[in-house]
Amino acid sequence: MTDDEILAEFRAADALLEGHFVLSSGLHSPRYLQCARVLMDPARGARLAEALAALLPAELGIQAVVSPAMGGVIAGHEMARALSVPAMFLERPTGTFELRRGFRLDPGTRVLMMEDVVTTGLSSREAIRAIEAAGGVVVAAAALVDRSGGAATFDVPFHPLVRLDVPSYSADALPADLAAIPATKPGSRAA
């Protein structure tokens, strides 16, 4: 898929929003990618995951896909389906990512950490640490969208389906036009 075809999938799902949004990172942005909307259509989710799976080097030898909840759950499941490996997700019952619900990784399991959208990379880095603490070996990170402008970095190769240069601002550095619009927080984290 080309970048235009990928973005067409988001537009068709009304998942590329314009306004004033507070991201899970706490940063503010004039655009928001609501991956839950693009992934609510299983056929669309499958197309996106298959396109991303086709970009991953076979030599990674991925044995499982692990995603951070909530945003990464469906993206991770679709990626695991595309790769024919198990899908698991991490939760934060006490503020720190961990595997629950009977999920476990055998020591040395080669894991792809899969996100829906990466902005700063903080959640992804936390997820990678949790996977490693659970015995997995993270061989790569992936996301449907890298909206970090290339700023998000990891200690493993990072494979986004599409890279977008979407500005984000700290609350005390908002441009006047963005500050004039009431902010909404559409993500999965309340705080």
Rank of each mutant, 00 (worst) to 15 (best):
E50M: 13
G71P: 01
E91K: 07
L174W: 02
A36Y: 00
L122W: 00
V85H: 09
A64C: 04
S124D: 04
D165L: 01
E9T: 10
A54I: 11
D14Y: 09
G26D: 07
L83N: 02
T120I: 01
E126T: 07
A127P: 07
M113Y: 02
A143C: 13
M79V: 07
A152P: 05
S188N: 13
G61T: 12
S170M: 09
L56A: 11
L33P: 00
G26F: 02
A180F: 05
A143Q: 09
V117F: 02
D146T: 13
S170V: 09
Y32S: 03
Q63Y: 02
P186I: 07
Y169F: 15
H20F: 04
A87P: 01
R147G: 02
A133E: 14
V137N: 14
V145W: 01
E18T: 15
D116M: 03
A51N: 10
L161G: 06
L178G: 04
G187F: 10
A49C: 03
M88C: 06
D116F: 01
I62Y: 03
E50F: 02
L52Q: 08
V139D: 01
R81Q: 10
S84Q: 13
A53C: 12
L164V: 09
M79H: 03
S148E: 12
R44M: 03
L56Y: 08
V38H: 05
A191P: 09
L174M: 05
R104S: 14
F21N: 02
G149R: 13
A43Y: 08
S84D: 14
M40F: 00
A12N: 14
A173Q: 14
M1K: 09
A142F: 01
F103Q: 05
L56F: 08
P42C: 12
M40P: 00
G187A: 11
V166L: 15
E18S: 15
P93H: 07
D155H: 11
F158S: 08
A143D: 10
M1A: 14
R163L: 01
L23Q: 12
F158I: 08
G135V: 03
A87M: 04
E115M: 06
I181V: 15
D4Q: 15
M114D: 07
A58F: 00
S67L: 07
A15S: 11
V111Y: 03
G26C: 05
V85A: 07
E78K: 11
H28L: 09
V139T: 14
F103E: 04
L178T: 07
P86V: 10
V111T: 12
A176N: 08
G76D: 08
T2W: 04
V118T: 12
S123P: 06
A13M: 11
S124P: 01
M40Q: 14
P68W: 06
R104K: 13
I128T: 10
G102V: 05
Q34W: 00
A171D: 14
F97V: 05
F21H: 05
G135W: 09
P86R: 11
R47G: 12
V137H: 15
L7F: 12
V118Y: 01
A43R: 15
A142N: 08
L55R: 15
A12P: 03
V22T: 15
V73S: 00
E78G: 00
M114H: 13
T96W: 00
P175I: 09
R163E: 11
G136Y: 05
L112W: 04
G19Q: 05
G121N: 09
S25H: 05
P93W: 02
A87C: 04
E91D: 08
